[in-house]
Nucleic acid binder design. Structure first.
Lengths: 114, 114
DNA sequence: GAAATATATACACAATAAGATATATACATG
DNA sequence: CATGTATATATCTTATTGTGTATATATTTC
């Protein structure tokens, strides 16, 4: 539960969300990101550190450049978090389905009242 | 793209993430949330407004109480956002799968180099 | 090994946001 | 309609965070 907070905090900044978007299709050097964003190099560097500490990106040196890319595991964690919520809607949908099919009709009608 | 930022910003605060968790299993009155969280009533109220403006929760008056609950649509939006990223990993996995099966072996080996 | 290129860090400043206290609004009940 | 209960808002204070400038570190090239 403490894990996701860092992920959400990392994604909660417009600049960082833009940086993430820049890496959508693959690795990007810091300089490429600086060009595309309207932020100074130092800022991009700091944002990348936050994204890195949140586990959202990884880095691979390439000569004097550093190539950043997204980490699938971070997205998996968000998925896992959301799955805990989806479950409840699915349960409700199941009950709705049963009601529509005429099964458990009494219980369904009873819940409608409360 | 501007939509998700609000969602992430709303979820980026520990108190709000806790409030969301409180509503995991269904509706909650403001007072119930105040009891469970260690924040003053005014703070909870303000957090609920932020969650509401982000589209994460909805409200339904019940006498003098107000019952808040999660909005499935918000989670759908996050899913949609993430789907755009998953697509790329799936493509890569497909290519990996092809390579492992020996199909398109030449192309796979070529990409390995670059 | 000096200059150039690429990236990270330190620091100061401004803007934002969270928290508490006090107050306002809305509904319910006698 | 006065009182109590439930929630929202206004205001102040404090802490956090993003941004830019300047500087440090690392790598390549001549």
């Amino acid at each position: 539960m403490n894990v996701q907070i860092r992920l959400f905090q990392a994604l909660a900044d417009p600049a960082r969300l833009g940086i993430v978007e820049t890496m959508k299709t693959g690795e990007r050097a810091v300089g490429d990101i600086v060009e595309r964003m309207n932020i100074h190099q130092s800022g991009v560097s700091r944002h990348l550190r936050i994204l890195s500490e949140a586990g959202l990106v990884q880095m691979r040196p390439d000569g004097q450049k550093r190539l950043y890319s997204l980490r699938k595991e971070a997205f998996d964690q968000i998925d896992t978090w959301m799955a805990g919520y989806r479950r409840h809607w699915e349960k409700r949908l199941d009950r709705l389905g049963e009601a529509l099919e005429g099964r458990h009709a009494l219980r369904a009608r009873h819940q409608e009242k409360s």
